[in-house]
Write a protein that binds this DNA or RNA. Structure first.
Lengths: 213, 213
DNA sequence: CCTACCGATCGGTAGG
DNA sequence: CCTACCGATCGGTAGG
């Protein structure tokens, strides 16, 4: 009862963050106006600035909500796996599912990397570096075990997989229609081929069953 | 002599197109102002609108300059190759070189796909469809010859390679610093790993010498 | 190619 | 959470 007001404010903040992510993702930060975001939420523009002091702070809050998700998700993802193949499959599935669940996430993340490379580089370094290092360690372990190809460049490989995952989702509406109706591709086809490419490039035996050691 | 004036105007148009591509690529279409573009060229804003009737027409002219390059380049690229491996190497090298030569090209292309998916889809369909169909035909030929893996989805594969090529160049400044100084990656490392990923996912024998039939 | 200028919209503030 | 309003900047025009 004492936090009824707080709960309502929390709901409103979440509604604003959702609308902002969609608008920023679709129109870009400069292209999206506070007016359009306020309209989508159903409030007046100054009311929006009561919850977030400025457009820039609103953007940072959206960014933070993405980072928080992965800071909570990554630890479990990387430890709960019985084999290298499982680890690859569950990690890339979680990565792609998260962005496909709401494509605005992929578009927003891609735009931020284009608009503010220095800031995004700093955020990644600060929040994601230990987890990325863990992935490269696993790849090197796989190489010693003979499960992962020797010619894989672990750091470069991670960049390619992340670029494919975010890029494929963010550009889905463009690329799916690259071919005539007769050769139309479903989202599942595109994602499936992405996983296949990542798998073939990584594993000595890409089609190995679940257990590999 | 009679076209001295025309030559000067052509030079000015080219200077404006260059500045516009850099500004659009770095700041986005909405984020880049005509004033900033005019400043970079060293003329007044209304002078810019004498050469291009509106900001939107200037954007379309930049887009057209990218498409024209590939409409001229692709025919030669796809026919001048002695083997499937050569075709893959020369095509992906040309693709990546073109974007690396001026990274604004990759950023601008990526932003346009995000900002105006319907328009870009239409442009690709109109200008690039026959060449893309030729590439899928080559992949299917390679599969019949036993050079290309049977589980490749030709359409999906092309999407992944294009996403990797454009995304890797456009996001180079962000991704290169994902790792500490001790594991720093050069552009060549990143591009090399991209080519390796594409090759391993495509060929039955990724390390085959030049001739394969 | 320039100076001078236009209406519209932007992010943000005052005050309640 | 709202109405009313601000200065700054936007793309674009008039006129030379």
């Amino acid at each position: 009862m004492e936090n009824k007001q707080t709960a309502r404010q929390g709901d409103m903040r979440k509604a604003i963050l959702d609308a902002a992510m969609r608008q920023f993702g679709a129109q870009g930060y400069e292209g999206a106006s506070l007016q359009a975001i306020a309209d989508e939420v159903g409030i007046a523009k100054p009311s929006l600035l009561y919850h977030f002091d400025s457009k820039n702070r609103l953007r940072k809050a959206v960014l933070e909500s993405l980072l928080d998700h992965w800071k909570n998700e990554l630890p479990g993802l990387l430890s709960n796996a019985d084999s290298e193949h499982d680890r690859f499959t569950s990690t890339i599935t979680a990565l792609v599912s998260y962005f496909m669940e709401d494509e605005s996430r992929a578009r927003f993340a891609l735009r931020e990397a284009l608009d503010r490379p220095a800031e995004i580089r700093g955020l990644i370094k600060k929040h994601l570096t230990p987890w990325i290092a863990l992935v490269t360690d696993y790849i090197r372990l796989g190489q010693r075990l003979g499960v992962v190809k020797q010619n894989v460049n672990p750091e470069g490989y991670i960049i390619q997989v992340m670029t494919m995952a975010i890029g494929t989702v963010a550009l889905g509406h463009v690329s799916a229609a690259l071919f005539g109706r007769d050769r139309a591709l479903s989202k599942e086809d595109i994602i499936g081929e992405m996983v296949r490419v990542g798998r073939e490039a990584l594993f000595v035996n890409p089609m190995a069953p679940n257990k590999d050691r």
